[in-house]
């Protein structure tokens, strides 16, 4: 069972490496690219969370409650 899952995961990991051309690069280069990917993702996420969300929230005058930490009126004032 566990073997099967590991096999499945490693196979699809290999497929993922192949379509991103990471199969043919060295180990450390793979790590570097993934670190870059992750950093970019985090930056975007943070940007979306802190800026875009409150910005659009202000535009439409509402912020969903499900997002803690962003209070009504916080962020950039557009009016």
């Amino acid at each position: 069972m566990l073997d099967n899952i590991i096999d499945f995961a490693s196979y699809w990991w290999f497929r993922y490496l192949m379509v991103t051309e990471l199969y043919m690069v060295e180990k450390w280069e793979r790590v570097t690219i993934h670190v870059i990917f992750l950093t970019l993702f985090c930056i975007f996420w943070y940007f979306n969370y802190s800026v875009l969300l409150s910005f659009t929230g202000n535009l439409f005058g509402f912020v969903p409650d499900v997002l803690p930490g962003v209070k009504q009126g916080q962020g950039i004032k557009v009016t």
Binding site: V19, T20, E21, L22, M24, V25, E29, T32, I33
Partner: peptide, 17 residues
Amino acid sequence: CLTYLGFYLLMILGYIN
């Protein structure tokens, strides 16, 4: 799209290397 993305990744990694 993936082919172009992969090509750019290879270029970037090449330059870093």
